[in-house]
Simulated assay, not measured.
Amino acid sequence: MIEQELETLNHFSTLVIDFFVNYSFQVIGAIIILIIGLIIARWVGNLTLKICQRHNVDVTLSGFIGSTVRLLIITMVMVICLGKFGISVAPFIAAIGAVSLSIGLALQSVFSNYGAGFTIILTRPFVVGNTIRCNDVCGVVEEIRLAYTQLSTEDGEIITIPNKHIVGEVLINSFENSIVEASIGISYSADPDRAINIIRDQLQQFDCVIKEPAPQIGIACFGDSSVDIAYRYWVPTKQLFDIQFQVNAAIYSQFRQQQIEIPFPQREVIIKEAPAKQPEATLVQTPN
Rank of each mutant, 00 (worst) to 15 (best):
T60Q: 15
R256C: 02
F206D: 07
A95W: 11
D201P: 01
F64A: 15
N46T: 05
P236T: 06
T149K: 01
S62F: 09
A276F: 13
W43E: 05
V167I: 14
D193R: 10
Q257I: 06
N46Y: 07
Y114Q: 02
L47W: 10
I186G: 06
I271K: 03
F222C: 06
D224F: 05
T123S: 10
K211E: 12
P215Q: 02
A220P: 00
A98T: 09
V284A: 11
I96K: 00
I80E: 06
I243N: 04
G218L: 12
I28Q: 05
N113L: 03
F85L: 09
V141I: 10
D191F: 05
E212S: 12
L71T: 14
G223C: 08
P91H: 11
Q259I: 01
V128S: 04
T286M: 08
G97N: 11
C134K: 00
I39Q: 06
T8M: 08
N22D: 15
K164F: 08
P162V: 00
P236Y: 12
V167H: 03
A281D: 11
I121R: 13
R124H: 11
S178L: 05
E143A: 09
I121M: 15
I184L: 13
Y23I: 02
L146E: 00
G156I: 00
V170C: 00
R133H: 06
I39A: 14
Q244A: 15
I271D: 03
F19M: 09
A276M: 08
Q216R: 14
L6I: 12
R232L: 10
N248P: 01
M1C: 08
P279K: 04
H55L: 14
I31Y: 04
N10H: 13
Q53G: 05
D224Q: 11
G168N: 07
E3V: 05
L146F: 08
I87R: 01
L34G: 13
P279I: 00
A276W: 09
V57L: 15
G66Y: 07
V235N: 04
F118I: 15
L122F: 14
Q53A: 11
T123V: 11
I198T: 11
I166H: 04
G117W: 09
D18C: 02
P162G: 01
D193S: 13
N177F: 10
H165C: 00
G29A: 12
G66E: 09
L82T: 08
I17M: 07
V127W: 00
Q204S: 11
L203W: 03
E273W: 09
S187F: 06
T153K: 02
G83V: 02
H165W: 02
A249R: 15
Q150T: 04
L71M: 13
T237M: 09
Q258T: 02
S67H: 09
A276G: 04
I271F: 09
L240T: 07
R42E: 13
S62Y: 10
T237K: 05
Q254P: 02
F12V: 14
I199H: 05
D193N: 14
I172G: 01
Q205Y: 03
F245W: 08
I219N: 00
E280A: 12
G97R: 02
F12W: 13
P263I: 13
